[in-house]
């Protein structure tokens, strides 16, 4: 079986599974291994100088979640601001988001190893954002499939330099050491199941919402739905895709019957449909205000000073992200 390096741009080579072709059912033998193991591994020192990611909770049998802080990346938090999870089957482990640095990824891996020795076969990224992907490097030694939405590779490829520089700046070069952008080796274009042994994960790519590469994951055995950043709680939502698309995805998610959901930012678990209500209210407040202001001929600058401000006291980090959200919403909704 030929090996195809998926972490490098490869001109004119479009071999499965690097090219985003549909993979409807994946098994370990059915996919081409990425030649990631041959890439040089950075030496990752295990020196947790800040809050450690070994704080993981088993929220359902075999389902573990680490909760990130309600903060912006900083030297103090080392980038530990997003939830990171893993699911253990009878044969293998899947990681769902890897936190914001290689060092945090190492801690997450240690937390997995404290629970099980089973091979880490899949590293799934729910979307492109740095606080969910920069821990990927810690798992290269496991030679897993890196799994993402079929638009994740493009999104990460074009943002690679900016993400690396910005996050190193925020958390500091020591805390960020070893972090790198690892592109997906398996791209998900239609609903796909991953077999972990006696349990299956259902992966469903979503239309543009929080970003244009949101992927949700359901552990069918425990009916645990990992929503990534399609669900924020406490931490104000951030729009980096489409506000109209996100509201419509929420309408779909509301109809689902699962035992629990895991947000990208928020408590370890929540329940549908209540979990979605505050975020839906926030996004609707922005959309309603911005649409009205556009109809009144108000400018983008005017909108950023008033739209959605009724939500100010309902969220952490409102001052950091709200104006940016309104800007994105205005630039999108003026084309309706």
């Amino acid at each position: 079986m030929s090996k195809q390096p998926c972490d490098m741009p490869s001109a004119g080579r479009t071999m499965h599974p690097c090219d985003g072709r549909v993979v409807s059912t994946l098994t370990r033998r059915g996919v081409v291994l990425a030649a990631l193991a041959s890439a040089s591994l950075p030496l990752l020192r295990h020196l947790p100088a800040y809050a450690a990611i070994d704080d993981v909770t088993e929220v359902a049998p075999g389902v573990f979640v680490h909760q990130g802080l309600y903060e912006v990346q900083s030297a103090a938090n080392g980038g530990d601001i997003a939830n990171a999870s893993f699911v253990v089957g009878s044969e293998a482990v899947a990681v769902i988001d890897t936190s914001g640095s290689a060092k945090l990824g190492v801690q997450l891996r240690d937390a997995i190893r404290a629970v099980t020795d089973k091979p880490i076969r899949y590293v799934i990224n729910t979307h492109m954002h740095p606080d969910h992907v920069f821990g990927n490097a810690a798992f290269k030694q496991d030679n897993p499939e890196f799994v993402g939405h079929y638009k994740l590779a493009r999104a990460l490829g074009t943002r690679k330099e900016g993400y690396l520089a910005a996050n190193e700046q925020m958390v500091g070069s020591d805390a960020f050491a070893g972090s790198e952008v690892i592109l997906p080796t398996v791209s998900i274009k239609e609903p796909t199941k991953l077999d972990l042994g006696d349990r299956e994960l259902l992966l469903e790519p979503q239309p543009t919402a929080h970003t244009d590469n949101d992927l949700i994951v359901t552990d069918l055995k425990t009916e645990t739905l990992f929503l990534g950043d399609l669900l924020f709680s406490v931490h104000v939502p951030t729009i980096d895709g489409s506000i109209a698309g996100w509201l419509s995805v929420l309408d779909d998610l509301e109809q689902r019957n699962v035992a629990r959901v895991v947000p990208g930012h928020g408590p370890k678990t929540m329940e549908l449909p209540e979990a979605l209500a505050p975020q839906k209210r926030y996004l609707s407040a922005i959309a309603d205000d911005v649409r009205r202001q556009i109809a009144e001929g108000k400018t983008l600058e005017e909108a950023t000073k008033s739209a959605g401000f009724s939500e100010k006291d309902a969220w952490e980090l409102f001052d950091q992200y709200h104006v940016r959200n309104v800007t994105a919403a205005y630039a999108e909704l003026e084309w309706e």
């Binding site: 330099e161 543009t208 244009d212 895709g241």
Partner: peptide
């Protein structure tokens, strides 16, 4: 930086 130049969708 360069990331600012990237399209959302």
């Amino acid at each position: 930086g360069c990331a600012a130049m990237q399209a959302k969708d």
